[in-house]
Amino acid sequence: MVLTAVLDYVGVATFAMVSTVAARDRRLDLVSAAMLGTVAGIGGGTLRDLALDRTVFWLHDPGYLYVCVGAATLVWFVGAGPRRRQTLLFLDALGISSFAVVGALIAGEAGVSAPVAVVMGILTATCGGILRDVLAGELAVLVRRDIYISVAMLSATVFVVATELRLPPVPAAICGAAVGTVLRVLVITRRWQLPAPPRA
Rank of each mutant, 00 (worst) to 15 (best):
R48Y: 03
L194I: 13
G11D: 08
L65K: 02
D8I: 00
M35K: 08
T55C: 05
H60R: 13
A13D: 00
S150H: 12
D8K: 01
A72C: 11
A23Y: 05
A51H: 05
L52I: 07
A93F: 08
L7N: 07
A107S: 12
A114R: 08
D49M: 05
I188G: 10
A172E: 00
L89F: 12
G70Q: 06
D25N: 15
G70R: 07
G103R: 06
F90G: 14
T20F: 03
Q86A: 14
I42H: 01
A72W: 11
G103I: 10
E109W: 13
S150K: 09
T46V: 03
A100F: 08
M35T: 15
A107H: 06
A114S: 11
P82R: 14
L28H: 11
A196G: 12
S150Q: 13
A5F: 11
V182M: 04
G70C: 00
G128S: 07
A93P: 04
S155V: 00
A117H: 12
T14V: 15
P168E: 12
I42G: 04
D146Q: 10
V67D: 07
R54G: 02
S98V: 04
T181V: 10
R84L: 15
R145T: 12
A51Y: 07
F90W: 14
V187L: 07
L91S: 01
L65V: 15
L183D: 04
L186M: 07
L74R: 10
G37Y: 11
A136F: 00
Y64G: 15
T163G: 00
A196N: 11
V141K: 03
R24G: 09
I130V: 15
L123F: 09
P198T: 10
Y64A: 09
G121E: 12
V21K: 01
E164A: 14
V18E: 05
Q193K: 13
L194E: 08
C175S: 15
V116H: 10
A16W: 11
S150D: 14
L194M: 14
A71V: 06
E109T: 07
C175N: 04
A34L: 04
W192Q: 11
Y148W: 00
I149W: 02
F57V: 03
A80P: 03
R191M: 10
P195F: 11
V112A: 13
